[in-house]
């Protein structure tokens, strides 16, 4: 089937088959591989995107469900060459190692700071508990969130 959706501010169309996830459609159909595929079971958050402004795991949303809706992926966050403050904070804080968790965490962090501009440590932990990182042990991810909150 053919779906049309707004991705990162652009009207896009894609051919998808019935069982295809939004994640697969973004990565393989729409040329946006930034959202990652670490589990495809809703357990790791590496595929986090905003669907009509709401944080979701793209692997758990059917591509067909996104028809007519608006999606923001990690590719839609930077302003041209200018990194989003959350992206900049992840780089500066050393919160990126292999980086496979990073796109999902960047989207989840931006979502957190949009809701709670100055989160407590407990709020950060809870908000990011659905995003697994295997490399960093999270310490520098918390630093990045605090840094991004401070510069906003």
């Amino acid at each position: 089937m053919r779906i049309s959706l707004r991705v990162n501010g652009e009207e896009r169309e894609a051919d998808v088959w019935g069982g295809e996830s939004l994640l697969f459609a973004l990565r393989e159909g729409l040329g946006l591989p930034g959202s990652k595929n670490a589990c495809e079971q809703g357990e790791c958050g590496s595929c986090s995107v905003l669907l009509d402004g709401e944080l979701v795991c793209a692997c758990l949303v059917l591509a067909a469900q996104a028809d007519g809706h608006e999606v923001t992926t990690v590719e839609g966050m930077a302003d041209g060459e200018e990194l989003h403050p959350v992206q900049e904070a992840y780089v500066q804080a050393g919160a990126v190692q292999c980086g496979f968790c990073t796109p999902g965490l960047v989207v989840a962090t931006a979502d957190l700071l949009a809701r709670i501009p100055d989160p407590s440590d407990d709020e950060i932990r809870e908000a990011l508990s659905g995003n697994v990182c295997r490399c960093t042990g999270y310490a520098k991810i918390f630093d990045a969130v605090r840094l991004a909150a401070a510069v906003r």
Partner: peptide, 13 residues
């Protein structure tokens, strides 16, 4: 800071 940090946070790596 990592040279690959930029591409990784942008989803371009």
């Amino acid at each position: 800071a990592r040279a690959d940090g930029g591409p990784k946070v942008k989803g371009e790596f």
